[in-house]
Amino acid sequence: MIPGQAKKTVVLGVLGVDAHVVGNKIMAHALESADFKVVNIGTFSSQEDFIRAAIESAADALLVASLCGHGEIECRGFREKCVESGIGDIHLVAGGNLVVGKQAWKAVQTRFLEMGFNRAYPPGVSPRKVIDDLKHDLKAS
């Protein structure tokens, strides 16, 4: 972090009825180590939980994880809800096992970008890659 510059705040959580907590903890640790202010709302979080946390904490980005395969359904309307809630410009990122079965990643990524996500990541992406992209996108480094 550049001295004197405020940390960037990210809201991190696992969307929907999804108990996968391990990746969430690893990601929170990696982001904190990279000098982000992490608001981790944990598992079983709704779109509204993410948005509420983002407004209170004046977050710069929402990092939405979905591991159960229902991400495509759970993430629908997320950008629209952010717009309605007054944080329409927030940086929106999705990652995990976002869809059911094995599907070509390019098509999945396109679907998420069309939904209004700024970035989407496939299964097995390294935290380093997500953090580097986040720093670039938020100009935090």
């Binding site: 705040t9 407004i55 209170e56 904490s57």
Partner: peptide, 9 residues
């Protein structure tokens, strides 16, 4: 009240 510390002001 309103906003976390360092959050929405």
């Amino acid at each position: 009240a309103g906003g976390t510390d360092g959050g929405n002001a």
